[in-house]
């Protein structure tokens, strides 16, 4: 009886926007210190718009154009992907590599959501959206551990370029394993259901 998904999106993004804005202004609202956090707040804003469209679609189904919920979700993913593309500049190659893989997962979510506008009842597209969201989320978590591992005290020192190249290959492999894990998770839930 309630648009649960839309309400959860609005609540989670409201927390995200507040946390990002507070992090961007650590010394008060006069001095912006971390513009990157404003970038995160902007990404949350588009997911909040998507949640709002979900709620409006639930309560006013005849007023909201058909497929606008999928469009707003696709827009949110596209903006998120574009914002992370900006992360690619002026970064070490390893950070770029992690973010390129993340952007691939984000744009996969965006493309599937766009296709759902024209194929709203396609079960395959619903699973594709779930699958790409699973990879997106799990790689997001993995990125946090690769780039900002709280257990790592000192920055990693590379003994040779070969070690560095091997680390990049490991990152690609880990992404592929995340994809495999997400697909197996999807299959298990389908079978249990």
């Amino acid at each position: 009886g309630l648009p649960v998904e839309g309400i959860i999106k609005l609540l989670v993004t409201a927390i995200g926007i507040l946390a990002s804005v507070v992090a961007a202004y650590p010394s008060g609202f006069g001095q912006l210190q971390h513009v990157g956090d404003i970038l995160y707040a902007t990404v949350y804003l588009f997911f909040a718009i998507s949640g709002l469209v979900d709620v409006l679609t639930f309560y006013c189904p005849y007023a909201i154009p058909y497929g606008l919920n999928h469009f707003s979700l696709a827009l949110a993913f596209t903006i998120e992907g574009l914002m992370f593309c900006l992360h690619l500049q002026r970064q070490a190659f390893m950070e770029q590599h992690v973010h390129v893989l993340l952007v691939c997962a984000i744009f996969a979510c965006a493309v599937v959501s766009l296709i759902e506008i024209v194929l709203p009842y396609s079960l395959l597209m619903k699973f594709a959206r779930a699958f790409s969201s699973l990879i997106h989320g799990s790689w997001y978590i993995q990125s946090g551990f690769i780039l900002y591992d709280p257990n790592r005290v000192t920055p990693t020192q590379w003994n040779s370029s070969q070690d560095y190249n091997n680390a990049l290959i490991w990152i690609s492999l880990t992404f592929a394993w995340h994809a495999a894990g997400a697909f197996i998770c999807l299959l298990v839930i389908i079978l249990i259901s």
């Binding site: 990002s20 699973f127 997106h136 799990s138 790689w139 978590i141 990125s143 946090g144 259901s193």
Partner: peptide, 24 residues
């Protein structure tokens, strides 16, 4: 670190919900 892990967990949760929605 939390800026990556928390949104990631949210996307995983949505992915699981969408999988359940599609399979039931």
């Amino acid at each position: 670190f939390a800026g990556y892990v928390l949104p990631g967990a949210a996307f995983v949760a949505f992915g699981l919900k969408w999988t359940l929605d599609a399979s039931t």
